[in-house]
Amino acid sequence: MTRYTDDELNRELENLRKPFEPTPARKRAMRQAVFSAKQPSPAKRILHWQPLLVSFILLIGIISATTVLIGKPGASVNGWFAKDVTDSWSGMIMEQTSRNDVISYYIVFQENNLHIENTNVSETFMGNVNITQAEAEKMAEEHQAKLAKLTMQPGDYPDYTVKKKNDLYTITIPGENGFSYTLEKTAPRQFTGEDGITYSVNNYTE
């Protein structure tokens, strides 16, 4: 067995290492690859305030739309923003002041009853001696047909409400034969109905 001195042993190890040692060019390439490697981009920060901002914008939109709808002329008085003034209207008498060939309203607001009366006596056919019986009956039918188209029908209604929003007042009768009729207050004791009929009242209203 051949014995090696220390120097000979080091030379042999050096010779064995050389095939595995990278060339200078390869060392430069590896160094560039390490230092020029793309750094990982920081994770995007989740903005938790975005859902809150969207909800706030939607809330503002809803409030704006509601305000516009409520403020529209002729908008329904019934709803969250209407005030029930039924009790303060008890004892009120409302009488039609405009002329109408079909109806002349006389309305009495009582504590537990709303009385609507038609005081119009049509002189166009009743007691007219210049028309035949058939003509009178035809005119009476036409008169009744016009009456049937009116929103407020004469009668007594034990259950009713009056609601106010600004200068608009809505009378509501519930039930199958009920109706809603809106009045606009044009003066302290003057009103105009949704159909253009004008009224006066005996007392100042809330």
Results as ranks from 00 to 15, higher is better:
G61Q: 09
A145S: 11
N203G: 00
L168H: 04
I173R: 12
I131L: 11
G193S: 12
A82N: 08
I107T: 04
L69Q: 14
S41E: 14
A43N: 03
G71D: 15
Y106P: 05
N177Y: 06
P51K: 00
T170P: 02
A82D: 13
V201L: 03
V108I: 13
L52E: 06
E12Q: 10
P154K: 04
S90N: 13
R99G: 03
T172V: 11
K165D: 05
A140M: 13
L47V: 08
K27W: 00
V162P: 00
E123K: 13
E95H: 03
I131E: 04
R26V: 03
Y105L: 04
Y105M: 01
S55M: 15
S88E: 15
E111I: 05
D101E: 10
K146R: 13
E111K: 14
P24W: 01
G193E: 01
N166Q: 09
E123M: 12
I131P: 08
R45K: 14
I62Y: 00
A37C: 00
I171P: 05
T86C: 09
T66A: 13
G127W: 09
T182E: 01
S55N: 10
P24E: 12
D167Y: 06
A65F: 04
Q190G: 10
Q50T: 09
Y204I: 13
S55I: 12
F81I: 07
K164T: 02
I107Q: 01
G127E: 10
R26Y: 03
W89C: 00
S88K: 14
T172L: 03
A145W: 00
F20K: 02
T192C: 06
I93Q: 08
M30G: 00
G79R: 10
I70A: 12
E176F: 05
I173N: 09
E194H: 01
R189F: 06
R3C: 05
E95G: 06
G155V: 10
E8R: 02
Q133I: 02
I103D: 11
V129C: 05
N120C: 04
N128C: 05
